Computed example of a mutant assay.
Amino acid sequence: MKAQFIEVGTPATKTIHIKKVNTDYLQSPFHFHELCELVWIQESHGQRIVGDHIDHFLPGDLVLMGPNLPHIWLNDASFRETPVKGSVKSIVVYFPANFLQQLSEEEEMIAPVKRLIERAERGVRFTGRTQQEVIKLLSGITKRKGLGKLLDFIKILELLTDSAEFEYLGSIQFENSIHPKDTARINLVYQHLMNNFSGEISLQEVAAIANMTPPAFCRYFKKHTGKSLTRFINEIRVGHACKLLLEDVLSIGEICYESGYQNLTNFNKFFREIKGENPSQYRKSIRASAAKESLF
């Protein structure tokens, strides 16, 4: 997947830069930049791609990404169709990979952060107590000044480096090829797929958006994403289904159709192929996990 290179800003190349997002819906294209990026979604939901990983996101999502890792957070269609002022809130922290090395040369201090940055090259999502403690610090960091802000950020780094409560997002095989050429084309295709996954999507219509013949587009898409068009669409749909299963409001039959599938057989087949279990098992796992957490 080709992605757009974005200049984050000169000040952030040497220190930390904190951005408070308050908008109607997320609009950034699929992009990458030279800094590490820590994202906390306060209010919002939709789909995100980090490297070659596609999944849903909900309030509380806490993800750390290393330099030059392509990514995008895209809201569900309802955010654009009926925008609500301030319905998307997020805190984003940008910082250079060698940030701590600029403050100290002690290997004992630097080594754990180096390991964290190495993990972040694939993107990592933090959960559990680590997620809760980091969110507490992020919720107040925009109000902090000078040394207080720096100390809070170092505490966040400490929590992340010490944590085992995380999951990798991108695959170990993922590599980002930086080719600015065709950025606009692949982004148009990407946006179309993410915005229309719940309906029928034909190869012909997507190839037309890319201004290519269907056979040429299939080769092009596979080369730049590492996936077939069918696999890509199914990962988007299953990611959306996971969000609906987590919300635990709709029946599995309703979720099937809401996610773009026309029958339960196909829904179960692709869900199991991507998640390793069927929708019913996934929902049971979620409920069991929620019940366990409620005991603490």
Rank of each mutant, 00 (worst) to 15 (best):
I209P: 00
I209A: 05
A210M: 08
A210W: 14
A210K: 10
A210F: 11
M212Q: 13
M212C: 05
M212Y: 02
T213V: 04
T213I: 01
T213Y: 01
T213H: 08
T213W: 00
T213L: 13
P214M: 02
P214T: 07
P214H: 07
P214C: 04
P215S: 09
F217Y: 09
F217C: 06
F217Q: 09
C218V: 08
R219S: 08
R219A: 08
R219I: 03
F221M: 10
F221W: 15
F221V: 05
F221A: 04
F221S: 03
K222G: 03
K223M: 03
K223L: 04
H224W: 14
H224T: 05
H224N: 11
H224K: 07
H224E: 09
T225K: 04
T225D: 02
G226F: 11
G226H: 11
G226W: 09
K227S: 03
S228R: 10
S228W: 06
S228M: 06
L229H: 04
T230Y: 09
T230Q: 15
T230E: 15
T230P: 00
T230K: 15
R231E: 15
R231D: 15
R231Y: 03
R231V: 11
F232H: 06
F232V: 00
F232N: 03
F232C: 01
I233L: 12
I233A: 00
I233V: 15
N234L: 00
N234C: 00
N234E: 12
N234T: 02
N234K: 01
N234D: 14
N234A: 01
E235D: 08
E235T: 08
E235I: 01
I236V: 14
R237T: 10
R237N: 07
R237F: 13
R237K: 14
R237S: 12
R237P: 07
V238Q: 03
V238W: 06
V238Y: 09
G239I: 09
G239L: 11
A241H: 08
C242K: 15
C242P: 01
C242Q: 14
C242N: 09
C242E: 14
K243N: 13
L244T: 03
L244Q: 13
L245V: 12
L246P: 00
E247P: 00
E247N: 04
D248W: 08
D248N: 15
D248C: 01
V249M: 05
V249C: 02
V249H: 11
V249Q: 12
L250A: 11
L250K: 13
L250E: 10
S251C: 02
S251G: 13
S251T: 15
I252K: 04
I252A: 02
I252R: 02
I252T: 14
E254S: 13
E254N: 12
I255M: 06
C256K: 08
Y257A: 00
Y257L: 05
Y257M: 05
Y257P: 00
E258N: 14
E258K: 14
E258T: 10
S259C: 06
S259E: 10
S259R: 11
S259K: 12
S259A: 15
Y261Q: 01
Y261D: 06
Q262K: 10
N263A: 01
N263H: 15
L264D: 12
L264T: 06
L264S: 12
T265C: 02
T265A: 12
T265N: 10
N266G: 10
